[in-house]
Amino acid sequence: MKGDIGKQVLEKIERERVRPYSKWRFVFRRSVMWGLFVLSLILGSLASGVMIFQLTHADWDLCHHLHMGYVTFLFHVLPYFWLAFLVGFTAFAYFYFRRTERGYRYPTVWLISGSVFLSLIGGGIAYKVDLAERLEVILRSNVSIYCRMQEMRSRIWVAPEKGLLAGEIVDVQSANKIRLKDFKGHTWQIELKDTLWRGRLKATKGLKIKVIGRMEGRNVFVAKEIRPWQGHGWRRFFRHGSGPGRGRCGRPDGKSPGRWGHEQK
């Protein structure tokens, strides 16, 4: 080695007035990394909370009706929008944890599965305390694009040849006959014979319903069971008067709001 590196370094430090960075700079950086990691986990928890909410309120009994396995049905009802968010926030959580003081020591698979696990735990809590439902309500009420995305998942119900129909009651003709306009704009004569009405519903004009039964002719559908458009999990939604009927989710086709999922108390 030619010169004395130690002396050269000290001279340069003095000449260029190099000073050690303040320890607060490092404390701040560490805090930012931990803060962003925790924030990613919280947002991941909210995403998984809404996922849990949507999955628990999916019509799982349709599996038998549609002759589908649970896995196949899961692919139909999986909330891909929130799944994408969960994946995104898990990636952020991984990224920021890796940048903490000793985050690099943990294997990637541990960090990712740990982040997903924590998000699911947080999501379970968010679901339990109704935070997930509130978020869903707020988004459905205020974000039209979110509404339309969610309604895509409801298309499973517009399959009369498979015995599923959903739409709005346009006319109550008698105790055994109603007319229903489905989400594609097609009008059906619904025959009510020993029909099971779930959710304490009563045939009312403007009510949005889901019908399980069988198609008998081009415009005739025999109803075995009728359900409210949104199940019992949406009670708070309507009680607070901020349901889709009053917000952006007025109709599945995005037109004027109606009385979505009107339930009788």
């Binding site: 010169g3 590196i5 370094v9 430090i13 190099v18 320890k23």
Partner: peptide, 26 residues
């Protein structure tokens, strides 16, 4: 080259000095 290595070494020590407060004692 030897000169480049010496320059790098100087930079390494100066960077280490700047970041002394960030040294994790663990």
């Amino acid at each position: 080259t030897h000169e480049e290595a010496e320059d790098l070494l100087q930079e390494i020590f100066i960077k280490a000095y700047r970041h002394l407060n960030g040294f994790d004692q663990r």
